[in-house]
């Protein structure tokens, strides 16, 4: 007996052209995101990945916290919850435990997941409950107009690090892996097609999956840190600042210096929480 949703036998297959409309609440558009914001690219990749899995919309739930990124659930035609700043994984944990057949996606920002929600985040990873946590990582608090976040790199400018941040940034993937997540990956809005595949893998994974998605906030991060435009910002951070796991294998440590890895960084198998709970109930009642 499995508690999983629809059999996910569909292999990943890219669809061109893609019709997004069945997945969107079109009446709720336009979205709130600024021109040049990466969140919309992430959403598009996600919808394509969702389609590739074949999971029915009724079986999908999206839970978010508070922030620009956390507005995503309002636009997608799933079962959706826009909760409290930092608490999305906790709400998602209750929802999933009560109804394991739902596939739960958490949409969260770097501030939401890493600062105020850090504790819920690491405990979600530890439990290995089946959920896909997407961290829309724009290295800044977007919604509140550009304060430093736990992923703001050292020396970078924000409204609360006017002279350059003196704090080191969190490596979301390292944190997730150490805390026990069984699928850990990094993608970028720049590599939208690659991201789509990573998202697909994350959705197919059974257990806690974390994807750190580098995306851009031109309005605040870009402007404060003197990137000329969105394209330059994406080039420097997402394209030049990352290498795929495959490329990295061929590069010298010097060449890898200062670059973030893209792709699936960790995958392991461990009892999923709801399965574990079911075993417990069987044991107690059996």
């Amino acid at each position: 007996m499995t508690t999983q949703v629809t059999a996910r036998t569909v292999p990943y297959k890219e669809k061109k052209p893609f019709d997004y409309s069945p997945f969107l609440r079109k009446g709720k558009l336009p979205h709130i995101w600024c021109a040049g914001c990466g969140h919309g690219i992430v959403l598009k990749s996600l919808l394509r990945a969702v389609d590739a899995t074949g999971i029915a919309k009724d079986d999908l739930a999206m839970v978010s916290g508070i922030g620009c990124s956390s507005r995503t659930p309002g636009y997608v035609d799933f079962n959706t919850m826009h909760t409290l700043h930092g608490r999305a994984t906790a709400f998602a944990t209750g929802l999933k435990l009560a109804k394991p057949r739902l596939k739960v996606i958490v949409a969260t920002g770097d501030g939401d997941a890493m600062a105020i929600g850090g504790n819920h985040f690491i405990h979600a990873c530890r439990r290995n409950m089946d959920m896909l946590i997407l961290v829309y990582n724009n290295y800044i608090y977007g919604m509140t107009s550009g304060q430093a976040s736990p992923t703001t790199p050292e020396e970078k400018i924000s409204t609360t690090s006017r002279y350059g941040s003196i704090e080191p940034a969190f490596d979301i993937c390292e944190l997730a892996k150490t805390a026990g997540a069984t699928f850990v990956a990094r993608g970028t809005a720049y590599h939208a097609q690659e991201l789509e595949k990573t998202l697909y893998e994350g959705l197919m994974h059974r257990g806690t999956a974390v994807i750190d998605i580098l995306d851009s906030c031109p309005t605040y991060y870009g402007r404060f840190n003197k990137y000329k435009n969105v394209a330059e910002m994406m080039d420097k951070i997402e394209k030049d600042g990352t290498v795929s796991v495959a490329q990295a294998a061929k590069l010298s440590p010097e060449k890898l210096e200062g670059k973030q890895l893209r792709g699936i960084l960790h995958r392991s198998e461990r009892l999923e929480y709801c399965d574990g709970y079911k075993n417990l109930v069987d044991r107690v009642t059996g």
Binding site: V63, M81, T83, L84, R87, A90, F91, A92, T93, G94, L95, K96, L97, A98, K99, L102, N119, H120, H123, Y277, L280, V281, V284, T285
Partner: peptide
């Protein structure tokens, strides 16, 4: 567990009420 219900010890009280609300919405 004896009645097939769900119990979870969360990481703090905030997580607890949030998880309970999640359960209620399910």
């Amino acid at each position: 567990p004896k009645v097939g219900g769900k119990f979870i010890q969360m990481e703090d009280e905030i997580g607890s009420i949030c998880a309970a609300i999640g359960g209620a919405l399910a």
